[in-house]
Simulated assay, not measured.
Amino acid sequence: MSAPTAPTTLTPSIVGQAEKHHTAVLTRALVGTTLNEQQWIVLNQTLDAGEPVEPSAHIARIAAMTQWARTEVETAANALLASALLTTTPHGLLEPTDTGKAVVRKVRTESGAIVAAAYGAVPTEDLVTAARVLVAITARMAQELAHA
């Protein structure tokens, strides 16, 4: 008889593997679009804002959220403007175009089924705990990075 396996604890390797699999799902859903990951996140976050956003603050928020250089986020936003997936309002704010909204729907639909199946295999209370833990770890890492 074999010894019982000790429960696995959360490690950077586990978090990294999960993140890499999320990225692979997104990459598959982005096939056929002109978007890379940075452009997708900028477009998706702009739509999620629910209203036009001030470009500088929006770029700063996404750079902080992703830990990307501000210039990378600006480049992504400029590419989205050039491809007419984002537009600038008369007041200088960014908002998705109808085409941009359609691309977001397509990508969310294509990735959503896989993500829903994966998350649906986990009890809700475990997802709540995982969310709380990952938010706490991310906040602590952000604090440490701010001191560097």
Rank of each mutant, 00 (worst) to 15 (best):
M1A: 10
S2N: 15
P4I: 05
T5L: 07
A6S: 11
T9A: 13
T11Q: 09
P12H: 01
G16H: 03
A18W: 01
E19W: 02
E19H: 08
H21R: 11
H21M: 09
A24F: 02
L26K: 00
L26Y: 02
A29F: 06
A29G: 01
L30A: 02
T33R: 04
T34N: 02
L35G: 00
L35A: 08
L35N: 04
E37C: 02
Q38L: 11
Q39R: 09
Q39S: 09
I41P: 03
V42A: 10
L43F: 06
L43Q: 06
D48H: 03
A49D: 13
A49H: 14
V53C: 03
E54P: 00
P55R: 05
S56Y: 13
H58N: 04
I59L: 08
A60M: 06
A60L: 04
I62G: 12
I62A: 09
A64R: 06
A64C: 08
A64E: 04
M65S: 12
M65N: 11
T66E: 02
T66F: 05
W68A: 04
R70A: 13
T71Q: 09
E74I: 06
T75L: 13
N78E: 12
T88E: 09
T88K: 05
T88F: 02
T89E: 01
P90T: 04
G92N: 09
L93K: 14
L93Y: 04
L94G: 06
E95L: 06
V104H: 07
K106T: 13
K106L: 04
K106E: 06
V107M: 01
V107C: 00
T109P: 13
E110N: 09
S111I: 03
A113D: 14
A113C: 09
I114T: 15
V115S: 07
A116P: 07
A116I: 03
A117H: 08
A117C: 09
A118Y: 13
A118S: 08
G120W: 05
A121Y: 00
P123F: 06
T124Q: 15
E125N: 13
E125Y: 02
D126G: 01
D126M: 10
L127D: 06
T129V: 15
A131Y: 03
A131C: 07
R132M: 08
V133G: 08
V133E: 15
I137F: 11
T138V: 01
T138C: 00
T138R: 12
R140N: 08
R140A: 07
M141C: 05
M141E: 05
A142L: 05
Q143L: 11
